[in-house]
Design a binder for these strands. Structure first.
Length: 585
RNA sequence: GGUCCCGUGGUGAAGUCUGGAGUUCACGCCGGCCUGUCAAGCCGGAGGUCGCGGGUUCAAGUCCCGUCGGGACCGCCA
């Protein structure tokens, strides 16, 4: 039907007769004998000149045949890739009339209520931005596959109907028709299967895996999402990191045209100390400053005896923060778990080089801070008049977390601004926090994660200090994915289970179908999984993964286009042996 | 489960704090004019359950209560 696409035509095509198919983006009529029709398809827009009366409206589907010619002097449109040429002597065939769309099919729809965009997603996707996002996604998928194939990974598909597993995210359940009252679960990840593929001798497995988790949705979380899932045998951490890096860097190059530099590494401990989070955004400063020693013998009650005292210095922004905003910062700090937040506005005149000058703090607690302490704060944070210093004193983890959150709130640029800063976070703790019910440590990654060999001795004596061979990949403050080297020896697995408070009977009951196969010869192995939606969103310059998913759900898990979810049909329910309870009051 | 923001012709906004006739702006839509425009221009027109329900009031888009929908976040996401 067509000889070219709407974004193809250039001066080199002048003189050729072409046929274009697409949607009418705009129509500019100048009386009966001259009209401009901008024709759009996924590749772009071309201006077509019609010298007859023509009845086309916005979004009509048409085929236009004409001759490519240079635009007359002074009418070139530099804003359009095809702007040096136009198609003249046009014959227009209307293939399908169209109702006026509910919103303009161009960048103006960026401002339209997202619910309406989702209700008419097929129109939203017709727009340049969304077409670009779909194609960035396709390019990333393709590059990732190619990188995995190059490295001798074998694509294996794992089932979507799996047994429910006790740990981890809430699962979607699928009722069994043949066994009423029994259910499949949809996989929150192919974790168990991929490790069994290692037992099976597959050696290197990968899959573009759809994962489903029935947890509340966020800007970076949907019920269903895609992971590059992979697992390797007879490897250590460096091998896994290298293989994943190849895929991620190839994907980045495919999306942006530029291959990023090798991905740097940082320990979890350093990330927490410097950035207060385990997914640091390295694009900006505002790093945490250590002050615990400064207040070792302080008279200030809020700081005395605190496990950890840290600060961030927000340069030059003291004046922005009135009492109201400072109260909001304090509320935010409390929301994260802090007992309070100390703020100091640095006042006065900085001294000449080497001189202290006449510098003070404007703060409700200024009178509790000694001159020596004040000088140490200024020296360590580098604070000068006009700066806002925020201090938290609490246990180490809370102090880091609160300031890390404030750091992000106060300094984090939009995700598409500035450079891409990839970083591996390594040496995560094996255990994180304590289970309120059992009083036992909780696994940081999952219960099959290998402890760091240097720390194995402390599993029993000092479990909370044991590091693991688990690692995360982080890009511009977003967690892209995580992985670990797995335990393949039963003795070590037993010790970790014991630390977790899982008895042998529990282990057999909960994980038996998974662990028994290891008895037939599990190779040392490890793997990784990273979220493709998140990677694509950042590479496409989007703040929200819904923008890179063709048909996403809203925050409440609904699809305004299909109206899913819908009430169960009584016949279907009966066949499945299900009865719906009335909503609890 | 919780906190905060939003809901006004097809679309986006103003109006809400401080109650007084569905008022306004831009885009779109319909009709007319127009031979070089390009998010064309000019003239005219149509289009509304102010998300929904209740309350206060002589009077509610505006105040109060509830509810539904959307978004950001906390919890949750081994």
């Amino acid at each position: 039907m067509r000889t070219h696409r709407c974004g193809d035509l250039r001066p080199e095509h002048i003189g050729t007769t072409v046929s274009l198919c697409g949607w009418v983006a705009r129509r500019r009529e100048h009386g009966e004998h001259l009209a401009f029709v901008d024709l759009r398809d996924h590749s772009g827009i071309t201006q077509c000149v019609v010298n007859d009366d023509v009845d086309v409206r916005s979004e009509y589907v048409v085929r236009i045949t004409g001759v490519v010619r240079a635009r007359p002097e002074g009418t070139v449109n530099p804003g359009l890739p095809t702007g040096e040429v136009e198609v003249g002597e046009c014959v227009v065939e209307v293939l399908r009339r169209a109702d006026p769309p509910p919103f303009p099919i161009d960048a103006r729809a960026d401002a339209v209520d997202e619910n309406i965009r989702l209700q008419y997603r097929y129109l939203d996707l017709r727009r340049e931005r969304m077409q670009r996002n779909l194609r960035v996604r396709a390019a990333v998928n393709s590059a990732v596959r190619a990188a995995m194939e190059r490295q001798a990974f074998v694509e294996v598909e794992t089932p979507m109907l799996v047994p429910s597993t006790p740990e981890g995210a809430r699962e979607f359940l699928v009722p069994s028709r043949k066994e009423p009252g029994s259910f499949y679960a949809l996989p929150q990840s192919p974790q168990l299967f991929k490790q069994l593929l290692m037992v099976a001798g597959v050696d290197r497995y990968y899959q573009m895996a759809r994962c489903l988790r029935d947890e509340d949705l966020r800007a970076d979380r949907q019920y269903e999402f895609m992971q590059l899932d992979m697992e390797m045998s007879f490897v250590g951490q460096d091998d896994v990191l290298h293989a994943v890096s190849e895929a991620v860097l190839a994907a980045a190059e495919a999306a942006t045209g530029e291959r990023p530099p090798p991905i740097e590494r940082m320990t979890w401990r350093e990330s927490m100390e410097r950035f207060g989070v385990d997914k640091p955004d390295l694009r900006f400063g505002l790093e945490l400053v250590e002050l615990t020693e400064v207040f070792a013998s302080t008279g200030f009650k809020a700081f005395a005896g605190a496990d950890s005292i840290k600060a961030i210095n927000v340069p030059g922004r003291a004046a922005e923060f009135g009492r109201n905003q400072l109260d909001k910062l304090t509320d935010r700090a409390k929301q994260i778990g802090a007992k309070g937040l100390v703020w100091l506005k640095v006042t006065g005149e900085a001294g000449e080089a080497g001189e202290a000058g006449d510098v003070g703090f404007d703060s409700p607690v200024a009178k509790f801070i000694s001159d020596d302490e004040a000088a140490a704060i200024r020296e360590r944070t580098g604070a000068v008049p006009g700066d806002l210093v925020l201090i938290v004193a609490d246990d180490w983890h809370t102090t880091c977390e609160v300031l890390g959150t404030l750091r992000n709130d106060l300094g984090r640029p939009p995700v598409h601004e500035g450079p891409y800063r990839y970083v591996w976070i390594v040496e995560f703790p094996l255990f994180v926090g304590v289970d309120a019910a059992t009083g036992r440590p909780k696994p940081g990654h999952h219960p099959f994660t290998s402890p760091h060999p240097d720390d194995v001795d402390r599993i029993e004596s000092d479990p909370m200090t044991v590091r693991s061979i688990a690692y995360d990949l982080v890009l511009n403050g977003w967690e892209l994915g995580s992985g670990s080297i797995r335990i393949h020896e039963p003795e070590l697995q037993r010790r970790v289970f014991t630390a977790l408070g899982i008895s042998e009977q529990d282990a057999a009951r909960k994980f038996g179908f998974f662990l028994n196969p290891f008895e037939y010869g599990a190779p040392p192995h490890g793997g990784f999984a990273f979220g493709l939606d998140r990677l694509v969103a950042i590479l496409a310059g989007e703040e929200n993964i819904r923008e890179v998913i063709a048909f996403p759900k809203t925050q409440s898990g609904a699809d305004p286009m299909t109206n899913a979810p819908v009430p169960g049909d009584p016949k279907q329910l009966a066949e499945l042996g299900l009865r719906v309870l009335p909503p609890s009051s």
